[in-house]
Simulated scan of single mutants.
Amino acid sequence: MFRLSNNLIGILNFLTFLLSIPILWVGVWLSKQGSTECEKWLDKPIIVLGVFLLLVSLAGLVGACCRNSLLLWIYLVVMFLLIVLVFVFTIFAFAVTNKGAGEVLSGRGYKEYRLGDYSNWLQKRVTNTKNWNRIKSCLQSGKLCSQFQTQFLNDNVQQFYTENLSALQSGCCKPSNDCNFTYQSPTVWNKTETANYANPDCRSWDNDPNVLCFNCDSCKAGLLQNIKTQWKKVAVVNITFLIFLIIVYSIGCCAFRNNRRDNWK
């Protein structure tokens, strides 16, 4: 009879195999049907993830259930590398998101964000023109600022100033507080063309719905603040996932030892 560890590894990898099928299907669907730059950018990582889970789960499943020591050994090597990768990424995520925070403004319900406040590694990612054009396309196709305009359309200037805006809304959909533009609507502000603005974002602002502040450093900073918040959450989840991987790896080691004992009999 199979030992308990072999059965557990078999069950876990069968579930992973089932999970890999819809992930792979979504990746293929996005590559064929994706209409936006964001969707097309996501298809390859999703397909790679689906294929990876499919192959690893098959190796673990066959290795545990068919007592194939070679496949189970390959499975354990991959699991070990995955544990190291998750551990390194978790430490890295905490390190690069340690810097940066929104600036509290007097009389405003929202914060504003400065690109220079964030880690150099993150800054380099968004100041790269190719990267930013792709990100900007995603933000525009996601209707970030059109939804922002609809949400606060009926606000007068005093009401608008008290709104609790997200980092992306504050950075991309309205001009910086430094500009002192005249409020007309959430995405329409009158500016003095001859003014000598200290903040270069003021010159980048345009009332065109396709431009707004998508070319501003504040928009890049808002994105980094959003990434920082999400990565902090991911890092916490990764700790739980890391513990789970270590447990599965330990069970896999037991199953591998069982296979070797059976093969020597």
Rank of each mutant, 00 (worst) to 15 (best):
Lys111Pro: 01
Ile47Lys: 06
Arg260His: 09
Ala221Leu: 08
Lys228Asp: 02
Ser141Val: 09
Leu4Cys: 15
Asn180Leu: 08
Ile243Ser: 11
Ala95Cys: 06
Cys145Gly: 03
Ala195Met: 12
Leu71Glu: 08
Ile47Trp: 06
Pro45Asn: 08
Trp29Arg: 11
Asn238Cys: 15
Trp205Cys: 01
Ile23Tyr: 03
Pro45Gln: 12
Phe148Leu: 07
Lys32Asp: 05
Tyr110Ala: 02
Asn68Leu: 07
Thr16Pro: 00
Gln151Lys: 15
Leu58Ala: 13
Leu72Phe: 02
Ile239Ser: 04
Asp262Gly: 01
Thr240Gln: 04
Arg257Glu: 04
Ala95Lys: 11
Asn215Gly: 13
Gln123Met: 11
Gln33Arg: 13
Leu82Thr: 15
Asn98Cys: 01
Asn128Ile: 02
Asn180Val: 04
Ala59Met: 15
Ile251Pro: 01
Phe181Cys: 00
Cys254His: 12
Lys99Gly: 04
Arg203Ala: 10
Phe2Cys: 13
Ser57Gln: 06
Pro22Arg: 08
Cys219Val: 06
Phe94Tyr: 12
Cys173Tyr: 00
Phe2Ile: 06
Ser204Asn: 11
Val157Ala: 15
Ser106Asn: 14
Val126Glu: 04
Glu163Met: 10
Leu115Gln: 04
Phe14Ala: 12
Trp25Leu: 15
Leu8Gly: 02
Asn68Trp: 06
Phe244Gln: 05
Gly100Gln: 10
Leu168Trp: 00
Lys40His: 08
Asp43Leu: 03
Leu8Arg: 07
Ser20Pro: 05
Cys254Trp: 05
Asp262Trp: 04
Tyr113Pro: 01
Ile23Leu: 15
Leu223Cys: 08
Tyr249Ser: 09
Leu58Asn: 06
Pro175Val: 04
Ser218Trp: 05
Leu85Gln: 11
Gly252Trp: 01
Leu15Gly: 08
Phe87Gln: 06
Lys124Thr: 07
Asn210Ile: 04
Arg67Asn: 10
Leu122Pro: 00
